[in-house]
Design a protein around this nucleic acid. Structure first.
Length: 523
RNA sequence: GCCCUCGUCGUCUAAUCGGUCAGGACAUCGGCCCUUCAAGCCGGGAAUUGCGGGUUCGAGUCCCGCCGAGGGUACCA
């Protein structure tokens, strides 16, 4: 049985697109499930800019997600090089073979002539097909055309009749009439080769067994099959995946349309949640990469790779009518191409968020702490690495925060636990409401006295203290708790108050309350 | 224009050979709880399966015709 070999072939564009990840993921899952190889090939045929620089973010993104490749950049492999820009001699050889065997020809039509023909066909409302009037059949023809100052491209000599049948693993049987196909160009006048030729040669050279790619390539498959058969290559299996579409639409998700997506409430929320986190750790938020269409966005904010992979896997694939949560291992075990959907699936930021929440809550306390600590370090809230006191505090905080932390970066919402007692900022609205108005300040002073005498200073004692405190005064807990919270954290939202006080510890709590009381005096 | 693909609640989807009130999840809405936030618990609404025909005792599932969306039709990938 021939081994399963799949590939992901990104162009070095400088970023890893979320739709690209889904394609990579399906290829990877399929290869891993069958004990085959997953190959990373770089489609840099017409790349002007610095390939290394534009490729690195893609490699980094895949590494981060845990999508590893058996052959390709960084790891090499038996079929190197894995960069199309370095494989030109292979393409040249294929072009020559096609020419020699009569499956391709030199063509001397100018772009202007072709354009005119195309328009004429359009006016007559008939399908356009090049009539080969500048096809050179002999060396003499070539010399004659060249004497006229014409330059040659190489075109495929496509069949003019018959039907091509493709058994797509996802779409089923698809038929194309050869007569509708064009004599596509495979080599330009400057000698460079076009994508489809390169693609066919590379897939063959790398012994790709299953071509799993986006559906935009389905219509391109006939010309590729024509080439590979003319070249004598075996036909790989094909699986054309539906697009990952924009939120609430059938259009392909695109990096360029961020402005438009931001008008979508859910999408905007995703960005609004991430922005303060990114800013806090010194990550540029205007940068192109700060965009939920790009994987780096999620890495910056501290999403879990498992959550993203789980969500993406379910975008177009499902196991049954109820299973939603999968680890990578479970995906590898259960994935199958025949349960991939045919229709485009739109990207839903809210659902991704729900997966992130679920996966994060699966983590042990220790794992959560490990996830979260780098964020505190990057924001300079703790030393790097944190000292023992800070470490203990992170443990306590994460435990008390419970599911309030959903992405690693969320820990920064609790920065007040790591700021000096006389430096954490106050939310002015909350301060006004709970400390300047009503009797919050008076309660705070009284409560401070009780706190000073409390022994031991832990959660159960604090609860008891509060209970007695409000019972004696015949007041409701809300009449004191908010004032205390704002006094010690500066915020009106946060952890349970008793946890907050216990984590801070008595000296810190008293200093913070004193600072707050002084602040009410100053106006 | 022509060719190809797709079309089930707002979104992701489920529904063996056609066969119980079209199921689940996310979102949404209400209620409970309550110390803010987050959560938790209980409940609700939401799809005449793109539309119109046909076959059948019975169709989301089969057939025909429309419509809509996307892709291809490049010396783009």
């Amino acid at each position: 049985m021939p081994s399963v070999r799949t590939r992901f072939a990104p162009s070095p564009t400088g970023y890893l697109h979320i739709g690209g990840v889904r394609t990579a993921l399906f290829n990877w899952l399929f290869a891993r499930q069958h004990g085959g190889q997953f190959i990373l090939r770089i489609d840099d045929t017409d790349q002007q800019r610095n390939v290394d620089e534009a490729l690195q973010p893609i490699l980094d993104g895949l590494h981060w997600l845990g999508i590893d490749w058996d052959e390709g950049p960084e790891v090499g492999g038996p079929f190197a090089p894995y960069y199309q820009s370095q494989r030109h001699d292979r393409y040249q050889a294929a072009v020559e073979q096609l020419l020699a065997s009569g499956f391709a020809y030199y063509d001397y039509a100018t772009p202007a002539e072709l354009q005119a023909d195309r328009q004429a066909a359009e006016h007559q409302q008939r399908p356009f097909r090049y009539d080969r009037r500048f096809m050179a059949q002999t060396p003499a023809d070539r010399a004659r055309f060249e004497a006229e100052g014409r330059q040659a491209v190489v075109r495929l000599k496509m069949p003019t009749e018959g039907v091509l049948v493709i058994d797509d693993l996802i779409r089923g049987r698809v038929e194309f009439e050869w007569a509708r196909e064009q004599d596509h160009v495979i080599q330009r006048t400057d000698g460079t080769c076009l994508y489809h030729l390169a693609n066919v040669v590379d897939d063959h050279d790398l012994q790709i067994s299953h071509v799993i790619r986006a559906e935009e390539h389905l219509s391109n498959t006939p010309r590729q099959i024509f080439m590979l058969e003319a070249l004598g290559y075996p036909r790989p299996a094909y699986a054309h995946l539906p697009f990952v579409a924009e939120p609430g639409s059938r259009n392909k998700l695109s990096k360029r349309k961020l402005d438009k997506y931001l008008k979508n409430r859910d999408f905007a929320q995703l960005v609004e949640h991430g922005r303060p986190i990114a800013q806090r750790i010194g990550h540029a938020v205007e940068a192109d990469a700060f965009n939920p269409v790009i994987v780096d966005f999620y890495r910056t904010i501290g999403y879990l790779p498992e959550a993203i992979l789980n969500y993406l896997a379910l975008l177009g694939w499902s196991l049954d009518d109820k299973t939603e949560h999968f680890s990578c291992q479970e995906l590898i075990q259960n994935f199958s191409l025949d349960r991939v959907n045919k229709s485009p699936a739109s990207f839903d930021p809210k659902k991704l968020w729900a997966f992130e929440d679920w996966h994060f809550q699966q983590l042990s306390l220790e794992q959560k702490v490990a996830q979260v600590t780098p964020y505190l370090e990057k924001a300079s809230l703790v030393a790097s690495p944190p000292d023992d006191r800070q470490r203990a505090r992170i443990d306590q905080l994460v435990a008390a925060a419970s599911d309030r932390i959903k992405t690693s970066g969320d820990v920064l919402a609790f920065d007040d636990f790591f700021l000096p007692d006389d430096e954490f900022p106050y939310d002015e609205k909350a301060f006004e409401k709970h400390l300047r108005q009503g009797d919050g300040l008076a309660r705070l002073r009284e409560f401070r006295e009780s706190l000073a005498a409390l022994e031991p200073f832990d959660v159960p004692s604090l609860e008891r203290l509060m209970h007695d405190f409000i019972a004696q005064r015949q007041i409701k807990i809300g009449q004191v708790i908010h004032a205390v919270r704002v006094a010690v954290t500066g915020k009106s939202i946060g952890l349970g108050l008793f946890d907050t006080l216990a984590i801070l510890g008595r000296p810190s709590v008293l200093r913070r309350i004193d600072r707050t009381i002084e602040r009410t005096a100053a106006s």
